[in-house]
Design a protein around this nucleic acid. Sequence first.
DNA 1: AGTTCCATGCTACCATACAAGTATGGTAGT
DNA 2: ACTACCATACTTGTATGGTAGCATGGAACT
Lengths: 230, 230
Amino acid sequence: MIEIKTIEFARPLAGSAGNAVYAELKRQIVNLELPPGTPLSEKEVSVAFNVSRTPVRESFVRLAQEDLVLVLPQRGTRVSLIDPEMVLEAQFMREQLERAVVRLACRDFPEDLLAELNRNLALQKECVQRHDTRRMFELDEAFHRILFEGCRKLGTWSVIQQMNANLNRSRILWLSTDPQWTPLYEQHRDMYEAIVRRDEAKADRIMQEHLSLSIANLPVLQKKFPNYFK
Amino acid sequence: MIEIKTIEFARPLAGSAGNAVYAELKRQIVNLELPPGTPLSEKEVSVAFNVSRTPVRESFVRLAQEDLVLVLPQRGTRVSLIDPEMVLEAQFMREQLERAVVRLACRDFPEDLLAELNRNLALQKECVQRHDTRRMFELDEAFHRILFEGCRKLGTWSVIQQMNANLNRSRILWLSTDPQWTPLYEQHRDMYEAIVRRDEAKADRIMQEHLSLSIANLPVLQKKFPNYFK
DNA sequence: AGTTCCATGCTACCATACAAGTATGGTAGT
DNA sequence: ACTACCATACTTGTATGGTAGCATGGAACT
């Protein structure tokens, strides 16, 4: 039996039912509330969300396109297992793109967003002290997002986000086991300073080290959660 | 009235009907057989393909996710216009990733695929003489694909392909107006030689120049086909 | 005991009917 | 002539019934 929290239809329009189901399922999948391997059936989900099978099926199609679920014709649908190979490739892509962006940021970055980075850093510092893992994860994402925004590469960021669903799941796993945020905060801070000083080489180097941390212990995660990986 | 070629259902299984409709629509869109802005209705397409609305709708959902069509609720669906902003970003992403890959290729590349690159180059040379634009386009894609394959980054390649649907449409436009393949062939050849000689810097530089050609005349295309762009 | 076969219940897939929102053209009123 | 209104014919969104394919378990046979 699957446990799926029903959607809040209180607000008159969170888009169509299909969108709502899609968004909620995706959220639960990347948060590992629906662990990899969980069987999903159109019917069960439809009764859980109190909609018909059509919008559920629609959401399955979209999730399948992002490799978040695996549809086996006439057999069933399951939350897809995390493919370590894909995690590594996603890491590769993200590294190349983020390094390029941070180099761009050193050449030109708007003042207001620079200030926003600074505010973000202050919040991060607080979270590190409070050990607020959840919030820190959000701030981390926001920090990188602002970098892309400042370089007018938000489309690139959204592509990364979409493609990185698998990488994100492993990152969620990671923070559930080893929440050492202090070095990450320091790297963010150093990156900020490098951008201010327009030191491309240094910013590039820090970003490289920074992102390599995310998957440093992928093998450890595989051994700790063998059922979640392919 | 829309003209859509009916699918060949001769072979018993080209996947599900939904997949078939999706694949065929996508092909026609990226080939500009369905120009940007063309209105598509679920009903019309369903009768054209001789299936019900359900699989058509399914394909619309997938195409919308790739920004190839634009669905306006209760109003209609159209082949999406090409967004120049997105074309530039796609170009940016592709440049970063391909340069990184070609540098990797200089460090390590399997012998058999190196031979395949060589065969590909020979075919390109023929096509340049024959002015076989269509085939040359395929060979160009294959050449770059082999690079990713040799670096074990095929997942990255497929992501690029998906994301680059818009970029590809503008590239198709481009070759319809200015089919000068000779310099492209020479760049491919020089890249091959740089890989063989493990000259990372040179390979990187050539790739950069090579990819910049694709969008050098984007503004020209915009003026020539204003209806196709956003 | 071990193997083959088939009934049963499951799944995703597809077709169809209905609902709800939107653009359009004609009409009545000013 | 112009404007406001409304019937109508579209559109996408949703619900539901039926179909074909697959897994499972039990029965029949060797």
